[in-house]
Nucleic acid binder design. Structure first.
Lengths: 115, 115
DNA sequence: TGCTTATGCATCAGAATTCGATGTATACTC
DNA sequence: GAGTATACATCGAATTCTGATGCATAAGCA
């Protein structure tokens, strides 16, 4: 009954898209950015994010660059060419997904004027 | 990289919504209806559907009615009052979800005329 | 008659993803 | 020196779904 259930499966799309658009970001920054931008509607948990970032690097979609800022460690991630293509593809897939869902959820649109 | 990954977490919404709108349906009918309506973009597997239907009945959102049609068994499902409310709520949640996702996926809309 | 397909239910092992808790470490503020 | 923010990470458990398998009846076709 958890409405946030719908966000399952979207994390990869979100991460790739943000990195493709914003150049480079580090993990913590991703969580803060998404939380702020959505007014808290979407919060990325660290337990989901870090394993995913590692997986995307292993898959060749992201590159990492370790840095040290203000004494703290940071790992900047940026998309590879392959990652950029995947990001675009996944955004398209998301739009198609929304269209498909609308087709199912609204089988009888309230517009009988088409008769 | 599977685009159908996005449909994760939407099955409950789809089932409740269809039943709320169409009165009553049986499992096999649900799979066929969704497949036809989406031109195959969304196919509900039996391994996902039947356990969910049982769960929704246990949760009081659906009722079952067993029938025998043309010698074959059928189990018609229909929403309870609680299930109808849940269906409406989940459709709202889906719309909110889409808005949230758009906010994240398109942080910089290509419309500078608002300046 | 026998084979295949369609209809209709169901379970189950494994995969994939995520949650929530926990852990480590540095910097800043009070 | 205590708490909060920053920043990384892992891990067990829960949830959900896939794909395979199984049972049974009816219809179509060779």
């Amino acid at each position: 009954m958890d409405t946030t259930q719908l966000f399952r499966g979207t994390l990869q799309t979100v991460v790739l898209r943000l990195l493709a658009e914003r150049g480079r970001m580090y993990g913590y920054e991703l969580t803060q950015h998404v939380r702020d931008r959505t007014d808290g509607a979407l919060t990325i948990s660290e337990g989901a994010l870090y394993p995913l970032l590692h997986k995307l690097v292993a898959a060749g979609l992201l590159d990492v660059e370790t840095a040290r800022v203000n004494g703290r460690q940071r790992k900047y991630y940026h998309v590879t060419a392959e990652g950029r293509a995947a990001a675009a593809e996944q955004v398209r897939a998301f739009e198609a997904f929304v269209e498909t869902m609308r087709a199912v959820l609204a089988p009888l649109p309230p517009n009988p004027s088409a008769a």
